[in-house]
């Protein structure tokens, strides 16, 4: 992607240093997601993936560095304000509201949207996931894992995000559903939503992403086009096991 045609950056992390007490977690991390891009963030256990997401969402504050959303510095803003500026997340393990219906889960996703826009959001999400329409009055906790994943994505999309964060979307899904799930991610991305997918499953996520970052013990150790990363020997050894 040449500099002249590159779309504006939607999310930028600049020199982020995050600490939990005395422990230095993220060390000088830089990350960019541009308008409409699908970027994946790879890394093993304890590599700082979740902390990166928490920093983006404002659940933890970096000691130094800046978080920019569409060019605006949001480092000091609370979570709700960042959501309002076009951020949404499908959390790890989905975290649906089990005793509530699919419809109510979706409504909660649109908490910050004006009431007049709700109908439109519902139609958009339902046309992407027709199954959610069929299951709208069912309790979310009674759905199967794959269906719950759809509700979680639908719920995140209800806030009409410009950037959707996905935390381990393949977790707890059967292999065949993982593939299907990534197809949906691609589909949503093609609808114009930029995505940052945090994954352990490097193979599948790199196959749909345009770019990727690899985290290791809190540092970005590799970054580049997804195709290049797939070919990278070190990465193959570390994550693909062959």
């Amino acid at each position: 992607m040449s500099a002249a045609t590159a779309p504006a950056p939607l999310l930028e992390l600049e020199g982020i240093n995050t600490y939990y007490g005395q422990i230095h977690i993220l060390q000088d991390s830089n990350l960019i997601v541009r308008e409409g891009e699908l970027v994946c963030l790879l890394g093993g256990n304890a590599s700082g993936k979740s902390t990166t997401l928490k920093t983006i969402l404002g659940l933890v504050r970096p000691r130094t560095g800046r978080v920019l959303l569409a060019g605006e510095d949001v480092t000091r803003l609370p979570t709700a304000h960042r959501i309002r500026r076009g951020l949404a997340i499908v959390p790890e393990n989905r975290r649906l509201f089990g005793p509530m219906t699919v419809l109510q889960n979706l409504e909660i996703g649109a908490y910050l949207r004006p009431r007049s826009d709700l109908q439109e959001e519902f139609e958009r999400v339902y046309s992407l996931f027709p199954l959610l329409y069929e299951r709208r009055s069912q309790l979310a906790g009674t759905l199967s894992g794959g269906e719950q994943q759809m509700v979680a994505m639908g719920r995140a999309l209800m806030s009409k995000p410009r950037l959707l964060l996905m935390d381990e979307p393949s977790m707890g899904l059967a292999p065949i559903l993982v593939e299907r799930s990534f197809e949906i991610i691609q589909q949503v991305n093609e609808a114009g939503v930029a995505m940052l997918v945090v994954e352990q499953n490097a193979n599948v996520s790199l196959s749909i992403a345009s770019r990727g970052y690899v985290l290791s013990t809190g540092r970005v150790v590799l970054e580049g086009a997804a195709a290049d990363l797939l070919e990278n020997e070190d990465l193959r050894k570390a994550y693909l096991g062959r």
Partner: peptide, 23 residues
């Protein structure tokens, strides 16, 4: 109302509620 549903989601999962942008 919206507030009632927000309360219930808060009861079920405060972190998820916060991630949906609830105050």
């Amino acid at each position: 109302s919206r507030t009632g549903r927000a309360w219930r989601s808060l009861r079920e999962d405060p972190l998820a509620a916060e991630l949906m942008g609830m105050p």
